[in-house]
Deep mutational scan, measured.
Amino acid sequence: YKIYPYDSLIVTNSISVKLPKDVDRTRLERHLSPEEFQEVFGMSIEEFDRLALWKRNDLKKKALLF
């Protein structure tokens, strides 16, 4: 996945969300650098992957990456 800054990946309720063209809309968190991922989620990507799907989705919603 290509890395993008968190600010360019957050999704708000506005209709005209302009995400970069090559971003996987269903896995926005994968486009964060490991350092920024840790900062946003408070855990590593590996720890995040071990969580239940509902928990990952809940965290993504709170981080505006859903």
Rank of each mutant, 00 (worst) to 15 (best):
T26V: 07
V11C: 11
E39V: 13
D49W: 05
H31A: 02
V11N: 08
I10L: 08
I3Y: 09
K61L: 08
Y1K: 11
E39I: 15
I15L: 13
L19P: 07
Y1C: 12
P34N: 10
V23H: 02
R25F: 08
D24M: 05
L64S: 10
R27F: 07
R30P: 01
E39F: 13
E46N: 11
L65P: 01
E46S: 12
L51W: 02
S44T: 15
T12R: 11
S16R: 10
S44C: 13
K21D: 15
Y1Q: 10
F66M: 10
E39M: 15
F41H: 00
K55W: 08
L65D: 02
F48T: 00
V17L: 07
I45A: 08
L65R: 01
K2P: 15
E46F: 11
F66A: 08
S14Y: 04
N13M: 08
K61E: 07
L28K: 03
L53C: 15
Y1A: 12
D58R: 09
E35V: 12
E39Y: 13
T12K: 10
I45G: 06
P34Q: 14
L51A: 04
Y4G: 01
L9M: 04
F48C: 01
F66C: 13
L51D: 02
E29H: 02
L64N: 12
F37Q: 02
E36C: 06
D49K: 06
L59T: 02
F37H: 03
F66K: 04
E29K: 01
E35L: 11
R50H: 10
T26R: 10
E39D: 12
R30C: 05
S8W: 14
L64F: 11
R56G: 03
S16Q: 12
L9Q: 00
L64Q: 12
D49A: 07
L59E: 03
K61A: 08
L32Q: 00
L9K: 00
K62S: 09
K2N: 13
R25I: 15
V40A: 05
I3Q: 08
K21Y: 12
D58C: 14
D58N: 11
F41A: 00
V23T: 05
D22W: 06
L9S: 00
R27H: 15
A63K: 09
P5C: 04
V40S: 03
V17I: 11
H31Y: 09
E47D: 11
R50T: 12
F37C: 03
K62V: 08
A52R: 07
P34M: 12
Y4C: 03
V23Q: 02
K21G: 13
V11A: 08
E36G: 05
L9V: 02
K55D: 10
G42Q: 13
K61H: 07
L59R: 03
M43N: 01
P5K: 05
P5D: 06
R56I: 05
K62N: 09
Y1F: 12
T26C: 15
T12F: 15
Y4F: 07
D49F: 06
K61D: 05
G42F: 09
D22Y: 05
L28R: 05
K61C: 09
R50V: 12
L19E: 05
A52V: 09
